[in-house]
Design a protein around this nucleic acid. Sequence first.
DNA 1: CTAATAGTGTCTCTGAGACACTATTTG
DNA 2: CAAATAGTGTCTCAGAGACACTATTAG
Lengths: 230, 230
Amino acid sequence: MVTSYVDRQGKRLDEYPRPSVAVDIAVLTVDAGCLSVVVVSSRHGEGLPGTFIHPGETLAVAASRALVEKTGILGLDFHQLAVLDEPKRDPRGWVLSVAHSAIARRDDLPEDVQLRPVRNGAPARSLVFDHDAIVDLAVADLEDRYEEELDPGHLLDAEFTLLELRRLYETIYGFEIEKDTFRRRVIGSLVETGRTTTSGGGRPAQLFGRRRDAKMSAHARLQHLAAKGR
Amino acid sequence: MVTSYVDRQGKRLDEYPRPSVAVDIAVLTVDAGCLSVVVVSSRHGEGLPGTFIHPGETLAVAASRALVEKTGILGLDFHQLAVLDEPKRDPRGWVLSVAHSAIARRDDLPEDVQLRPVRNGAPARSLVFDHDAIVDLAVADLEDRYEEELDPGHLLDAEFTLLELRRLYETIYGFEIEKDTFRRRVIGSLVETGRTTTSGGGRPAQLFGRRRDAKMSAHARLQHLAAKGR
DNA sequence: CTAATAGTGTCTCTGAGACACTATTTG
DNA sequence: CAAATAGTGTCTCAGAGACACTATTAG
């Protein structure tokens, strides 16, 4: 490392005390129809998987490493949410945490992973440090991204029915959606496969695939919330 | 600092090598009808004002300190944009930067502050390290927040005409807006003051104030961009 | 047949966009 | 009067929401 640079006060870079920098990851999934988050247990209590960043790593690499080491989860994409910077947020010392989120299909997670529901109606979480707040950020981010794009986390298979898609969005948004309105909203982002499935019980449902670059039309959830005066 | 905690590998917290953590701030303003960013000169070239975080500080405090020390700017609100984490992004060594943005009125900035235009048509910036990318993030963030709310950065006075408001939005969005459509879009977020001003040259324009909680209606800019096929 | 789910026709409402028009000032 | 800016009336278009209707399967 080059250390000969000095700043305006004449201090060398390596004279500054430095914080430890951690990554914490909220891995969200839909388990049994419920939006859930992966947690790990430690001596401090239940929290999100995380680790300290190592030299030469990017934050995404550190996040991958944390998930493998602590949960056995592999190969997710990470989104930065925020930097948690309260000097006293971690009793071990001065630790900044870069909060991340990721989305995973339940069956891409190990069988024995610990999951906690995250929706408001669900039993209260109480994770260590400020990890509850990270989960809230992750959920808000998930909602935003599902509003922009059609199932960007690929929680559904390559082919799915409109009912399956709608149930997924209801799980993520946390409220029911009218089937006719929903159909018209997403149909432009789908391609018919010609195949049908009768697993639902009534008339066979058509199976759809995603269009490339499958945006959601307009901003329905915002309008919905506005209409209800929330 | 408590250092007796150990992690799963049995390492104490203070045994990990730590990155330096910097804050860099893109202060945006409208100067002479042009969206601009505050820059500072150093031996590396022109860059955004920034500093290393000190023990006990939050990032926002470090950002305030950086602005005062390097530009004399006081009292802005900061928004975290992203963490820049490429291990080699800073030639001085391993430096993470938490990019921030802030919005300021031109006349709240010192007279002699260095400003550079940021819009695409403007002369190319070429700031040090990855600071051009931070400016891009700051501009995107500004556009998003001006789309959600009416002049959240309070770049206008307490009372203003619709022409002034529209010119501001045109400067921020980077394209012209129809006056009739714009008027109908924002009028619900304004309160009439009863006063008028004739400084424009033609019929006197009414002066408006902000409503508390002045949201913009719907998401006009997105729809505009979609309509133009961009 | 009924139950159940899939999918459509159609009406209303809202807001964006566009154009033309009227209104009120200065010179 | 002309020029300039402020503000409105009104039409079209698109999409959300809601309701009722038709379609196709299982049993």
